[in-house]
Design a protein around this nucleic acid. Structure first.
Length: 292
DNA sequence: CACTTGACCTGTCCGC
DNA sequence: TGCGGACAGGTCAAGT
């Protein structure tokens, strides 16, 4: 479930914790989680130091002094959790919330630094990965060549969102928002939340939206993404930040996972259906179903 | 080309 | 209580 706000929260944590640390050792137990040649790992990771941590779309970039980067996608259940030397996240620790003692059975990759601190890549469902790529070539990866602009960038306005969504004019607005080539970083949670804010039914065809609706959708999308970053992201079940802490946006969510509860705007009962192959939450009164 | 569906995985939850 | 199956959802490959 990590979407833009969750990955941004992890990035903020790692950017504070990692730069300057030198890697001593790498371990992994699932090759698909770490699809890199052993010789490259030996040459470009071991003894390299972290220089910078960045995010683009839902992808984390850990830049190394070797001029290589660790490119990390958390997909649905990935976590990146840092532990200082000797630090534990077991019961009683102030950060104990979801993460217990590490490594655990979901730990796929472990970076051990020369000061004995560690970075754990945990991934229950094994969809995520950590790839080693030469830093100058990272943005040449197919994903980065196709991915859309950052929605929170200063130069990204509502007309830009409108123009890009209209490239998918024959599909539903929900499918278009989830399309990473339209705009980067939006997933199921913030798609549903922003559509509720803009009072647009998720299955509305993009071509039937008015300029006013595009403008409201832009405002709501930016609002929920910023609020979620401020709240440390959404923890539904798995997500934690770089220190193992949960995010609190879910307690602010207005439709996501609130089916059967009342709409905070009009009191109607929130419904859940399937749009664009995803569980989709909406208010039947505030977000009226579009004509077929 | 535009768009939709299935595969990748494991843990949880629901009904029988 | 145990067990099978549906479900969770980011992305890419394959299908319509």
């Amino acid at each position: 479930m990590p979407e833009l706000p969750e990955v941004e929260t992890v990035k903020i944590g790692l950017a504070r914790l990692l730069p300057g640390r030198q890697i001593a050792e790498v371990d992994f137990d699932w090759p698909k989680s770490f699809p890199n040649a052993p010789a490259d790992v030996q040459k470009f990771i071991i003894k390299a130091s972290v220089t910078e941590v960045k995010r683009r779309a839902k992808v984390l970039l850990i830049e190394l002094s070797s001029n290589y980067s660790l490119v990390i996608h958390l997909k649905m259940t990935g976590q990146l959790v840092f532990k200082g030397a000797g630090e534990r996240f077991g019961a009683g620790h102030p950060n104990a919330s979801l993460v217990g003692s590490l490594p655990d059975k979901s730990t796929r990759v472990t970076l051990t630094f020369t000061d004995n601190s560690r970075l754990f890549f945990n991934d229950q469902r094994k969809f995520g990965w950590v790839r080693l790529i030469p830093t100058p070539e990272v943005m040449n990866l197919d994903f980065f060549k196709k991915v859309g602009p950052e929605p929170l960038a200063a130069d990204f306005g509502w007309t830009d969102l409108c123009e890009r969504l209209l490239r998918r004019k024959n599909t539903s607005i929900k499918a278009a928002l989830l399309d990473q080539t339209v705009v980067a970083g939006v997933g199921n949670i913030y798609a549903d939340e922003s559509l509720w804010g803009a009072k647009i039914h998720p299955s509305t065809s993009v071509k039937n939206l008015s300029a006013r609706q595009f403008h409201e959708l832009y405002d709501e999308l930016v609002y929920v993404l910023r609020l979620a970053i401020e709240k440390g992201g959404s923890t539904d079940r798995n997500y934690v930040d770089a220190e193992g802490k949960k995010g609190s946006y879910m307690s602010f969510a207005r439709v996501f996972r609130r089916e059967g509860q009342s709409c905070p705007r009009c009191g109607s009962i929130i419904e859940k259906s399937r749009v664009a192959g995803r569980g989709t939450h909406f208010c039947p009164l505030c977000q009226p179903k579009p004509p077929l």
